[in-house]
Simulated assay, not measured.
Amino acid sequence: MNLIDIDSEICTACGLCIVECPFGLLAQQTGDVPDLIPGGESFCMRCGHCLAVCPVGALALDGETPESCDPAQTGAVVDPPAMAALLKNRRSIREYKDRPVPRKDMQELMEPVRWAPTAKNEQPVHWLLVDDRAAIHDLARLTVEWAREIDRMPELVTAWDAGKDLVLRNAPLLAIATAPSDGLSPVIDSTIAASALELAATAYGLGSCWAGYFMRAAQQYGPIAERLNLPRGHQVCAALMMGYPKRTYHRVPPRKPADVTWLGSV
């Protein structure tokens, strides 16, 4: 099987796959069906742009045919007011109802998050979903243990000793994104994926909050990595507390004006 197969009976030689390839790995003689340049297979990142852009469905990539793809929506998938409302109404949720998050909902939610962009389409992000309350409590305990050992963030330690969890906030679910530490951009890839999950979760009535204390501890404290039993070579890159919000918010609080500088002539 070739990396790229083009059906010569369907192809119109329009050249869109050539101009769409990020690395210029396709070429064609005048009027001929495009073909992969010599050595092109080594540089192809299987992004699928050539497969997606072909208007007649003549191209297959790495065994994936047009028939195996979902049809793309043309134009704006979400109108500007709806997108603005999604972004403006996002809140960092730190108090949750005592209600578990159904695994079925999380499984559905994780499906579209797979399309979050990653460097060179490596798709390195691995998700560890923790919905065992005792395990989440223990991860919070280890984070406080780390803070106590390094003598930092005394507010965490004081609150914990008083019976209050400021680390993971008694969340019913913890979503942890990990990636190989020797990848191109593991933290950025995971952060983008977690941001996608954070926004997508609102469709299921879920709220979330970045677990910053836990993230720092997991990257520096060996016992947490051991407790998580991460895939070999992986590091914790992002984490979200998740659950059903305990409160209802009735207004959107203000933010500073956008800090924007234009570079270029008017």
Rank of each mutant, 00 (worst) to 15 (best):
H250L: 13
W160A: 10
S181N: 11
A217W: 00
A162I: 08
G205P: 08
W115V: 11
W160E: 11
G48I: 10
Q28L: 05
P22E: 01
C54M: 08
I192W: 00
G243N: 10
L61I: 02
R94N: 01
L36A: 10
Y204S: 14
L156W: 04
R133M: 04
D79Y: 03
T118Q: 06
K246L: 13
A218R: 08
T74E: 12
P100V: 09
K164P: 00
E64Q: 15
G243E: 06
A82C: 13
L109N: 14
D79R: 03
A85S: 12
M241N: 11
C47P: 05
G264N: 02
M83W: 07
A171E: 10
W262T: 12
A179S: 14
C54W: 04
Q28G: 03
K97L: 12
Y204V: 06
L184S: 08
E111L: 10
V187R: 13
D32P: 04
T118K: 14
P102R: 12
A82Q: 09
T248A: 15
K88N: 09
L228P: 02
N89L: 05
K104G: 13
G48S: 07
E108R: 14
R46S: 13
L263M: 05
W210G: 04
K164F: 04
L87T: 06
Q123P: 00
R99S: 07
P55D: 08
E198N: 15
W146N: 15
L109H: 11
H49P: 02
E149Y: 03
